[in-house]
Simulated scan of single mutants.
Amino acid sequence: MHLARQSFNLALFAAAVSTFMSLVGAGFLLTEKANDGAVTAAEGMAEACAMRSAC
């Protein structure tokens, strides 16, 4: 039971980080403060970090 709750919390955290990074990235793209590659790379790194939960 504890492992299931921990897995759910990790997945929820990863989804929240991904959503936040997507919104921030969209804001940067709309205001032309970052290029497509930088936003994509930042999202990928944040998602990988959230999934590992050991950054």
Rank of each mutant, 00 (worst) to 15 (best):
Glu47Gly: 02
Ala46Pro: 00
Gly44His: 04
Leu12Asp: 07
Val17Tyr: 04
Thr40Gln: 13
Thr31Gln: 11
Glu43Asp: 15
Ala46Met: 04
Ala41Met: 04
Phe13Leu: 10
Cys55Tyr: 02
Asn9Gln: 12
Thr40Phe: 09
Asp36Gly: 12
Ser53Asn: 12
Leu30Ala: 07
Thr40Lys: 08
Leu10His: 07
Leu30Tyr: 10
Ala50Phe: 01
Ala15Gly: 12
Asp36Ala: 08
Met45His: 07
Leu10Asp: 13
Val24Glu: 03
Glu32Leu: 05
Val39Ala: 00
Ser7Thr: 02
Ala50Ser: 05
Lys33Tyr: 05
Asn35Ser: 12
Arg52Leu: 15
Asn35Asp: 15
Ala15Asn: 07
Leu30Val: 10
Ala16Asp: 09
Ser53Lys: 05
Leu3Trp: 06
Ala4Pro: 05
Leu3Glu: 15
Ala42Lys: 04
Ala14Trp: 00
Leu12Ser: 01
Gly25Ile: 01
Phe13Lys: 08
Leu10Trp: 01
Met21Tyr: 03
Gly25Asn: 01
Ala38Gln: 12
Val17Arg: 02
Phe28Thr: 11
Gly25Glu: 03
Ala54Trp: 04
Cys49Asn: 11
Arg52Phe: 10
Ala48Pro: 06
Ala34Val: 07
Phe28Ser: 06
Ala48Ser: 12
Ser7His: 11
Ala11Ser: 04
Ala54Lys: 13
Met45Ser: 11
Ala4Gln: 09
Glu47Arg: 12
Thr40Glu: 08
Ala15Lys: 11
Ala48Thr: 09
Val39Trp: 01
Ala42His: 11
Met51Pro: 00
Met51Tyr: 05
Arg5Phe: 12
His2Gly: 07
Ser53Thr: 05
Leu30Asn: 05
Met45Phe: 15
Phe8Asn: 13
Val17Gly: 02
Leu29His: 02
Gln6Gly: 13
Arg52Gln: 09
Ser7Val: 07
Leu23Gly: 04
Ala16Ile: 06
Val17Phe: 00
Thr40Ala: 06
Thr40Val: 09
Gly25Ser: 02
Gly37Thr: 03
Ser7Gly: 12
Asn9Trp: 08
Met21Gln: 07
Met21Ser: 12
Phe13Asp: 09
Arg5Asp: 11
Ala46Glu: 00
Met45Glu: 10
Phe8Glu: 06
Phe13Arg: 11
Leu29Glu: 00
Ala54Thr: 15
Ala50Cys: 01
Thr19Cys: 15
Cys49Gln: 14
Met51His: 02
Ala14Arg: 00
Leu10Gln: 15
Leu12Cys: 06
Ser7Asn: 14
Gly27Ile: 02
Thr31Ser: 14
Glu43Ile: 14
Arg52Met: 08
Lys33Asn: 11
Val17Glu: 02
Gly25Lys: 05
Ala42Glu: 03
Thr19Ala: 15
Phe28Met: 14
Leu3Gly: 08
Asn35Gly: 08
Lys33Glu: 14
Cys55Ser: 12
Ala48Asp: 14
Ala11Arg: 08
Asn9Ser: 04
Asn35Lys: 04
Phe13Asn: 06
Leu29Pro: 00
Gly27Gln: 09
Val17Thr: 05
Met51Lys: 07
Asn35Glu: 13
Ser53Arg: 08
Asp36Phe: 15
